[in-house]
Amino acid sequence: MKWRSARRSSNVEDRRGMPGGGGMKLGLGGIAAVVVIGLLLGKSPMEMLGLVAQVQQQAPAGSQAPSAPVDDEASQFIASILGETEDVWGAVFEASGSRYTPARLVLFSGQVQSACGGATAAVGPFYCPGDQQVYIDLSFFDQMEARLGGGGDFAEAYVIAHEVGHHVQTLTGVSAQVNEIRRRGGNVEGADGPLVRQELQADCYAGLWAHHAQKRHAWLEPGDLEEALATATAIGDDTLQRQGQGQVVPDSFTHGSAEQRVRWFRAGFESGDVRRCDTFAAGAL
C-alpha cells in the first residue's frame, strides 16, 4: 500500500510512553466505567472486565497535555490514514451540504484514560463518542496478525477507517439513536440487532473510504484488498466465538458475522456511495 502519498493529519496525539496514558487506578468506580465502555462500544461488559488491568498512575481525565507525535514510521502511517479519512469524509459531507468535523486519534501504550473511562490495550482500537476521539495501541496490529489471522498495512488502515466510521455515526446521529434504544431497555444485541447494524455500517463506511482513497491515490497493491477482507473475516463474531468458546451464539452478536462484515465492506468499496451503507434500512443483513 503506497500510503505515503496521503496528506498527514495534525489531529494525532501521541501518548505512548506516558505513565498510565493519563489513566487512573481502578476501584469500584473504575470497574463501573469499564462496563460503560463495553456498552458504548457494543462489547460484552464481562468481556471488558476480563481485559481490564490496573492502571498505574492516578490522573484526572484531560490533565495530561498533548505531546508532539514521535516522528516514526508508525505515527506517519497513522497520520496519513487519518488525513485521508478527513479528506474523503470532508468531500462526502460537503456534497450533502454539511461540514465534516474531524475526529482526533490518540496513540497510547498499555492503558489510557478517555471520556468513556479507563481502558487497556487488550480492548483493542475504540472510538469514544464522549470526546470524539479514536484510541489505538499499536501493539493491537501485531496481535491482529499473530493471533487473529489478519494484518498488513491496508488491514490496519481498514481498522482505523472503521473507527472513524463510528465518528461519522456520531456526527450523523446514528450512535445517539442506538444509545436511545439501549436507554429505554431495548435489546440491541443479536445477529439482526441495532449494534450489529451499527458495526456493519462502520464496515461499509470503511469500504467507502477505501474506494475514494483508491481513486485519489491508486495506492493499493496486489494483496492489499485481500488483507482487509481476511481481517474482516478474522474479527467476525462467529469466528471469534468459535475460537473462544467452541460454538456460535448469534443472539449475542454485536459486530456481525465474518460473511456480513466482508459483504458490507465490499458494498462500500465497490460503490463508494454512502446511500449503500444504510444498514438500518436493509431488511436482511
Rank of each mutant, 00 (worst) to 15 (best):
M1V: 12
K2E: 14
R4H: 14
V12C: 11
E13S: 10
D14V: 11
R15T: 05
R16Q: 11
G20L: 01
G23A: 10
K25S: 11
G30T: 05
I31H: 05
G38W: 02
G38M: 07
L40D: 03
E47H: 04
L49Q: 06
L51A: 15
L51W: 01
V52K: 10
A53F: 05
Q54N: 10
Q56R: 14
Q58K: 06
A61S: 11
G62P: 11
S63P: 01
Q64E: 13
P66V: 02
S67M: 12
P69G: 02
V70S: 12
Q76T: 02
I78A: 11
G83R: 03
E84I: 00
T85S: 15
E86T: 03
E86H: 00
G90I: 12
V92N: 01
V92C: 08
A95K: 14
G97A: 03
G97P: 15
A103L: 01
R104P: 00
F108T: 07
S109Y: 00
S109N: 09
Q111K: 00
Q111M: 10
Q111E: 15
A115G: 15
T120L: 06
T120R: 02
A121H: 04
V123M: 15
P125C: 04
Y127H: 12
D131P: 09
V134I: 13
Y135G: 07
I136S: 05
L138V: 05
F140I: 00
F141M: 13
Q143N: 07
M144I: 05
G152L: 08
Y158H: 08
V159A: 07
I160K: 03
A161T: 00
H162E: 09
H162P: 00
G165Y: 01
H166T: 02
V168Q: 13
L171Q: 13
G173I: 01
G173F: 05
G173K: 03
S175Q: 10
S175N: 10
A176Q: 13
R182N: 03
R184S: 09
G186W: 06
D192V: 04
P194I: 12
V196T: 05
V196N: 05
L200R: 03
L200W: 02
Q201V: 07
Q201A: 10
C204T: 07
Y205C: 09
Y205A: 03
Y205P: 06
A206E: 08
G207V: 03
L208D: 06
W209R: 10
H212M: 12
A213M: 13
A213N: 09
R216P: 12
E221D: 12
G223N: 13
D224N: 10
L225D: 06
L225A: 06
E227C: 04
A228T: 12
L229F: 04
L229R: 12
A230E: 13
T231Q: 13
T231A: 14
T233D: 04
D238K: 07
Q241A: 04
Q243R: 14
G246W: 01
G246Q: 07
Q247S: 14
P250T: 04
S252N: 05
H255R: 10
G256Q: 06
S257T: 15
S257V: 15
V262K: 08
F265A: 10
A267E: 10
S271D: 07
G272V: 08
R276L: 04
R276D: 12
C277Q: 07
D278L: 00
T279G: 11
A284H: 05
A284N: 09
